[in-house]
């Protein structure tokens, strides 16, 4: 399997990237490191956007993995997709079923609250957000 991928990568490496913002896979490792798709600071920022806190000592290794994955992903930009309509799902072009806008389900608030971490008077409890 690795050999399959190596063959694929080899083919891809021979092409130049179409988007200037992506590092050229032909760059040597030194230059690639100087211009990675994601940096440690990006990882911290994206994690915050996703409401995740990361252990600071894991960030270098995590970033290295992400750089490798994004390098692999970036090859999608090697293919010309001019005039191609994006496909968001297999049947995105099919008219999907919509229910009539009427109530069909009973109120299950009590059942939902049984599995909540904290509730009071029919409401979910969170730490105070307004002083």
């Amino acid at each position: 399997m690795i050999r399959v991928w190596q063959t694929v990568i080899k083919g891809l490496l021979s092409r130049s990237c179409r988007l200037i913002k992506f590092p050229n896979p032909n760059l040597n490792e030194e230059k690639k490191l100087a211009n990675p798709l994601i940096t440690e600071n990006d990882v911290r920022k994206v994690a915050h956007l996703a409401r995740l806190t990361l252990n600071e000592k894991d960030i270098p290794e995590r970033t290295k993995n992400l750089v490798n994955i994004l390098d692999m992903i970036a090859h999608i930009n090697d293919r010309d997709t001019q005039n191609i309509t994006p496909m968001s799902s297999p049947f995105a072009d099919t008219e999907l079923f919509l229910r009539d806008d009427i109530v069909t389900e009973p109120n299950k608030r009590d059942a939902a609250h049984l599995i909540a971490p904290a509730t009071e008077s029919g409401l979910y409890l969170v730490p105070q957000v307004i002083d």
């Binding site: 988007l19 913002k21 992506f22 994601i38 990006d42 990882v43 994206v46 994690a47 956007l49 996703a50 995740l52 990361l54 995590r62 993995n65 992400l66 994955i69 994004l70 992903i73 999608i76 930009n77 293919r79 997709t81 191609i84 309509t85 994006p86 496909m87 968001s88």
Partner: peptide, 30 residues
């Protein structure tokens, strides 16, 4: 799971959406 959430958030973020997510949707069509 955290790794994939980070990748997903990254490819959907402003500045990368077209280059990654939209582009991937076009390749998906191909």
């Amino acid at each position: 799971v955290k790794r994939r959430i980070i990748i997903g958030t990254y490819v959907l973020s402003a500045g990368y959406y077209d280059a990654f997510y939209l582009k991937a949707q076009k390749i998906r069509r191909l």
